[in-house]
Simulated scan of single mutants.
Amino acid sequence: MTTEPTPSSPETTPPPSEPTAAKTNYDPKIVGIVSYITLIDWIVAIIMNNPKTEFGSFHIRQSLGIMLLMFVAGFIMIIPVIGWILGLIGYLAGFVFWIMGLIGAIQGSKNPVPLIGDKAQEWFQAL
């Protein structure tokens, strides 16, 4: 006596699983910290901040404001003497703001950095 395999009936065949979108639920605190490291890490933080969180977006905007301050300070240093002085002041302020923002992200607080923090939140709302 030989047994033949029975064809699978449509009722017993499980439906094919649908591909699901990858969820990236990173801790918003990590997103905030990563956004302060370098420009490349800032881009990585934007990608990690999906779905957008208020805390992650806050620190991404703060970090962008600080990076722009440093860029402008470097550009101003093209001007001899007065530009060097103003650029140095801008770099020192940017460094202090960077430390303040990084510490705020580590502590989990949303305190804007002085002078540019509120403007960064206003200008870069889309991030």
Rank of each mutant, 00 (worst) to 15 (best):
E18G: 10
S57E: 15
G32A: 08
T20R: 14
D41T: 05
I37K: 10
V44P: 09
A45H: 14
N49T: 06
I60P: 03
I60T: 05
E54T: 02
H59D: 11
I37P: 08
I37S: 15
K52M: 01
P28R: 04
V44Y: 15
T24R: 09
T38L: 07
N49R: 07
E54Q: 07
T24L: 10
Y26G: 01
T53M: 01
I60C: 04
T24F: 06
G56S: 12
T53Y: 00
I33L: 13
F58P: 07
V44L: 15
I43G: 01
T24S: 10
A21M: 04
I47F: 14
A21T: 13
I47Y: 13
S35I: 00
F58K: 01
P28K: 02
A45R: 04
N50H: 14
E18C: 04
E18M: 07
K29M: 06
K29C: 07
I60E: 04
V34Y: 12
A45I: 12
G32M: 06
K23N: 13
I43V: 13
D27W: 12
N50I: 00
I47L: 11
N50D: 14
T24M: 02
D41E: 12
F55V: 06
I43A: 10
A22F: 06
P28T: 05
M48N: 11
E54M: 01
Y36V: 02
D41H: 12
I43K: 05
M48E: 02
D41V: 08
H59M: 11
I43W: 12
I60M: 06
A22L: 12
I40K: 07
K23F: 07
I60S: 03
V31S: 05
W42C: 05
I46Y: 01
N25H: 01
I46T: 14
P28Y: 01
F55Q: 14
K52T: 03
I47C: 07
T20V: 10
D41Y: 12
I30W: 12
L39Y: 15
K52Q: 11
K23T: 13
T38M: 08
A21H: 03
M48I: 00
T53D: 00
F55I: 09
T24D: 14
Y26L: 13
H59R: 09
E54H: 01
A22Y: 11
I37D: 09
P19E: 12
T53H: 00
K29D: 13
N25A: 03
T20A: 08
H59K: 08
W42E: 05
K52N: 02
T24Y: 05
P28S: 09
W42I: 03
M48C: 11
Y36A: 00
P19Y: 07
Y26I: 09
I30F: 15
G32H: 11
N25W: 01
P28Q: 02
F58Q: 02
V44F: 10
F55Y: 14
V31G: 03
H59N: 09
A21N: 08
M48L: 15
I33P: 08
P51G: 05
N50Y: 14
D27L: 08
K23R: 14
S57M: 07
I43Q: 08
M48R: 06
G56T: 06
D41Q: 11
K29Q: 14
T20C: 01
S57I: 11
P51A: 02
W42V: 04
Y36R: 02
F55D: 10
F58M: 03
N49G: 07
I60F: 01
V34S: 06
A21L: 12
K29L: 05
M48V: 03
D27M: 04
